[in-house]
Amino acid sequence: MPKDKFVTVQTSFVPMPIENVDTDQIIPARFLKATTKEGFGDNLFYDWRYEKDGSPKADFVLNNPAYSGTVLVAGKNFGSGSSREHAAWAIDGYGFKAVVSSFFADIFRGNSLNNGVLPVQVSEGFLAGLFTAVDADNKTEVKIDLENQTITNVATGDSESFEINSYKKNCMMNGYDDIDYLFSISNEIEAYEKQAVKF
């Protein structure tokens, strides 16, 4: 279904300076038994976030009231492993609009874009700057401007541009999705099929 339009966000953020956060951590497999997309936000990072008895783990960042905001800032190689789109649904369901990291796994990047959650890939130095800023002031903010493809560390004023192809940018800014586009070229798909190699 078409998504909400992505507009510029300026917000405090949740820091997670851990590398290689895989999709099994984002949403453990035992929570994949649903047949709809709703409710995954409650189980986001479940095994890091809750004790066995279901009580919150005080030392996990999502349980620390000092940190808040609609952007998650994570260590490099975020979203590796399983292709489960439930990971993107969980991040979206929790209320994050964007994830910032110095490196994203391919499938997760695609799944995020298809759910209106913007993956913003920044340099190692910029990422380190965000972690330093939030250590000094947990309400420090980050600004993400999709139209101009820039991200700014508000505390320091450091700014960096990020990449997104113009097709996906247009989808994000207007809330379009790929299926609308594919339906619009059904004649071309049929023409392709007529000439394709088959055995």
């Binding site: 292709s83 695609g110 799944n111 339906f183």
Partner: peptide
């Protein structure tokens, strides 16, 4: 290759998906 559920929907609905060439 593996795909997410949005792409499963695309492939079911149109037999195509949209992918940047790796």
């Amino acid at each position: 290759f593996g795909i997410g559920t949005s792409e499963v929907e695309m492939a079911l609905a149109t037999q195509c998906i949209m992918q940047p060439k790796p």
